[in-house]
């Protein structure tokens, strides 16, 4: 069992710094999801933990042991890749056993572990197939299995679900989460999908341009985003941003931008609301409807409404749950009240 510690970790390629000093403490058995837009440095960070990229500055420890100068296989980690990275010429069984054979583990122990993992992942019937004879979901499971049989101190996942279709993705993220709980293995999970982050993580790390903007439990991050970036990235539909001039009576003095989630807005008659505008368009999701309202200043505000879609062009008022309004200063930092 293991903890992972990142201390002021930096990475530069040539002269460009892509990771600008990340600190992170992962508790034993915790599932940390690193989330952020494409190109923000998630993979680079994960690969530094794995030992596939050198660490330019800072220190990474796994289970209390500094690993900066250790080879990947000496770090006692297992990694699941986006494209699964299965050995195409080997059967599922051989894929699972490969690492164990190299570690010179006795054959009966290898067989026992492979059988156990195959059972856990419902791969028993496919052990003699080659990867190309498997579906995407099954390949994903083999990649998981290859990580599990090693019984490592930590799992590292790099967007493991992004090659699957939407439905399978929902199913697999629950399976991975359940598996991780059951095995209790410390895990770092990288994704660009904020829904994956919200649903799977014990704590999320929201990354932006090589910086960890916020680290915390998903709901905490959702309710109290530390910055404009986090507020806009976490949540779907994203948080509404409003010019404080429109709400000058309640806006904090130093606020440059105000934010409110669509579920904290409601539609009223044109006269009654705090804000008013015309309906630009509606997205009916079934259970509720996202009403996009065009404000007087031309910006759009999304209201999550439980009513039916409304005619485009209709004049509406929007009422706000004022305690839920967040203020952000000129640097995009949240203003704590």
């Amino acid at each position: 069992m293991a903890t992972i510690t990142l201390n002021a970790v930096k990475k530069t390629y040539g002269k460009t710094e892509v990771i600008h000093g990340v600190d992170l403490d992962v508790a034993d058995g915790e599932l940390i999801v690193i989330v952020g837009p494409s190109g923000c440095g998630k993979s680079t960070l994960l690969r530094m933990v794995a030992g596939l990229e050198t660490i330019t500055a800072g220190e990474i420890s796994i289970a209390g042991r500094k690993v900066n100068d250790l080879e990947p296989h000496e770090r006692d980690i297992a990694m699941v890749f986006q494209n699964y990275a299965l050995y195409p010429h080997m059967s599922v069984r051989k894929n699972l056993a490969y690492g164990l054979k190299i570690a010179k583990i006795p054959t009966d122990e290898i067989n026992r572990r492979v059988a156990k993992a195959a059972k856990m992942l419902q791969l028993d019937d496919y052990l003699d197939r080659k990867p190309r004879q498997l579906s995407g979901g099954q390949r994903q499971r083999v990649a998981m299995g290859r990580a599990i049989v090693r019984e490592p101190a930590a799992f590292l996942f790099d967007e493991p679900l992004s090659n699957l279709d939407a439905k399978l993705r929902v199913q697999m993220r629950m399976e991975i989460k359940a598996l991780q709980r059951e095995l209790g293995v410390t895990s770092l999970y990288v994704t660009h999908d904020q829904v994956e982050a919200m649903t799977m993580a014990d704590r999320v790390v929201v990354m932006n341009a090589g910086i960890a903007e916020q680290i915390g439990p998903p709901l905490e991050v959702y309710r109290n985003p530390a910055s404009l970036f986090v507020a806009g990235f976490i949540g779907s539909p994203p948080m509404n941003f409003i010019n404080p001039a429109l709400l000058s009576d309640i806006a904090p003095a130093e606020a440059e931008t105000l934010g409110i989630r669509p579920e904290h807005c409601a539609l009223t008659t044109a006269e009654a609301g705090r804000l008013s505008g015309t309906v630009a368009f509606c997205e009916a999701l079934g259970a509720d409807t996202l009403v996009h309202v065009r404000m007087a200043d031309g910006s759009l505000l999304i209201v999550r409404s439980d009513g039916d879609p409304i005619e485009t062009g209709e004049a509406v008022g929007v009422s706000l749950e004022t305690p839920e309004i967040l203020g952000f200063d000129s640097d995009g930092r949240a203003i704590r009240s």
């Binding site: 980690i77 990275a85 050995y87 490969y98």
Partner: peptide
């Protein structure tokens, strides 16, 4: 990534060559 997976699995350069690269 296939080569990297083998490296994480503990295969040395020579081992990776003979068990992964050469067959592929």
């Amino acid at each position: 990534s296939v080569i990297e997976a083998a490296a994480i699995d503990g295969a040395s350069f020579a081992k990776r060559f003979w068990t992964i690269v050469f067959p592929l």
